[in-house]
Simulated scan of single mutants.
Amino acid sequence: MQKFKVVLGALTLAVAATTIGYYGGVHIQAQESVTSSTYNNMSQVTSPNNSPKTNGVSSWAQDDVKYMADKGIVPQRLQSNYQSTIDREEFSELVVSVIDYMSPAKFALSRVHNDVKFNDTEDFHVYKAFGAGVVNGVSDSEFKPKANISRQESAVMMANMLMSIRMSDLSTTEFEFVDKLAIADWAKESVNIAANAKIFQGTDIGFRAYDPYTREQAIVTMRRLLDASGSMEGISLRGKLFIKMSDVVKNNGDTPILPKGSNIDARVGINYIKLGSVSNPEKMSEYIDRISTNLSVDTVTKLKGGIKTVNDGDLMIETNGDDFLLKISWK
C-alpha cells in the first residue's frame, strides 16, 4: 500500500417494486447468493421477531442486512423495500456511509471541494462518492441520480471503491462465471476484481450482468467489502491521489482530532485535482512532499527544482497556476 503524508479535511466527496430479472428466456428473481439452494430460497422474512429495520428482507440476506443496520451503516431511506432496485443516488449514500464507518476522519474531511456541478442533482452524497472516484457522471454535466443500477454497473462501482481505498491483492484474473461472455467489455475487468475479492459471488446460473442490483444486494456486498478490508488506511481523490487517513487525524485517546494547521486546500474535477492556494506559495514544497509517494523520485526532484510541468505515467503535474499550487490531471 502506498504511504505518504497528506492532511486534509472532509471529503466533499462525494424502483421497481420487485427484483424480477430476465435470464436465458426465464424470469428470475435477482439476488446475491452463494449456492443454488439459497438462490431458490427467496422467501421474505417478516416474522414478528424481525427488527423493523429488516422487515421484508429476503432470507438469504437477513443476517448481513441486520448486521449493517445494527452498525448504523444502512441509510434511513434504504431501510425498507429491500428487494427493489437501488438507484445511483441511493447507492452513493450507501458508499459514503461505508466510507464514514471505515474511517475515523469522516468529520474532518471538509476542505476538499468539488468543481463539478451536475445539472440534475445537488445531493451531497453523490459529490462525496464522486470525489472518492467511486461513482462518475454519465457525462460531464449529468449524473442521472434516479437511474437504476444493473449488476455489472454495480461491479464497476464496487471495483472503483476497492481501488480507491487501495485494498491489497486485487486481481483481474478472469473469474469463471458460466455466463461470463454476457458481461459487457467495459465491465469485465471490474467484475473480475470484485469477484476475486469475493465481493460478488453469483450463482450456479452465473453473474447475471444485466439483472437489477437491489438494495439488499448492495448492503450485502458492502458487508463483504467490510469483511475483506476491515478498515481503510486512506482513500484516493477521484481514484487517483491517495490520502492516508492517519495523516488526516490523530487520536486523543479514542477521539480522533484534526491536528492544528493540518488542513489542505483540495478541489476535484472530472479529470483533475487542484491542491493549495496561490496565497500560500510557501507551502509548495510541503504539498509536493505530501503527494510524493504517488509520484516517481525523478518527478519529485523536477517539481522541487522549479520545473512547472512534469508528466508522470498518465498524470500531468503542474505548479503555480492562477488558482492552485499543484494541479494533477489525467486524460
Rank of each mutant, 00 (worst) to 15 (best):
A197P: 08
E216P: 01
M232W: 08
L226H: 02
Y213T: 02
K188N: 09
A228V: 00
V220K: 06
A197Y: 08
A195Q: 01
I235M: 15
I219R: 03
R215F: 12
D204T: 13
G230A: 08
I183D: 05
I199F: 07
G230F: 06
D185S: 15
K188V: 14
A209E: 13
E233T: 02
T221K: 03
G206M: 05
R208C: 12
I183S: 15
A184S: 15
F200Q: 03
I199W: 00
T214I: 04
G206A: 07
T214E: 06
Q217T: 07
A184Q: 14
R215W: 11
A228Q: 09
Y210S: 14
I235K: 13
D185I: 11
A195C: 08
P212H: 08
A194E: 03
I235W: 11
S236H: 06
N192Q: 01
Y210C: 10
T203R: 14
A194M: 07
Q217W: 05
T214Q: 02
E233F: 07
R215L: 09
R208P: 06
K188W: 00
S231D: 13
N192R: 07
V191M: 11
A209F: 10
M222G: 01
K198C: 01
A182R: 13
A195F: 00
A187P: 12
D211K: 06
A228C: 09
M232K: 12
A182P: 12
G230S: 09
N192H: 07
T214Y: 05
M232P: 05
L237T: 11
A184G: 14
R208W: 11
Q201D: 01
Q217G: 14
A228K: 05
Y210W: 08
E216I: 01
S190N: 15
F207M: 08
E189C: 12
P212M: 05
I235Y: 15
G234K: 09
S236Y: 10
D211Q: 11
A194L: 01
S190K: 14
A194Y: 01
A184F: 12
Y210L: 15
R223L: 02
L226G: 02
R215H: 13
N196L: 07
L225W: 00
N192I: 02
T221M: 13
A228G: 09
S190F: 06
A209T: 09
M222W: 05
Y213E: 11
A195D: 05
L225K: 00
G234N: 07
G234E: 04
I199P: 00
S231L: 13
A209I: 06
Q217C: 04
I193L: 10
Y213K: 06
A228E: 07
T214N: 05
A209N: 13
L225P: 03
R208T: 12
A197R: 04
R215Q: 13
A184T: 10
I193E: 07
S231Y: 14
V191Q: 10
A184E: 14
I235V: 13
K188H: 08
R215K: 13
N196V: 04
S229P: 03
Q217N: 12
T214V: 08
M232Y: 03
N196H: 03
I235H: 11
F207E: 04
A195T: 06
L226Q: 00
R208G: 14
R224P: 00
A197M: 03
S236W: 10
A197W: 02
Y213R: 06
W186P: 10
A187H: 12
G230R: 04
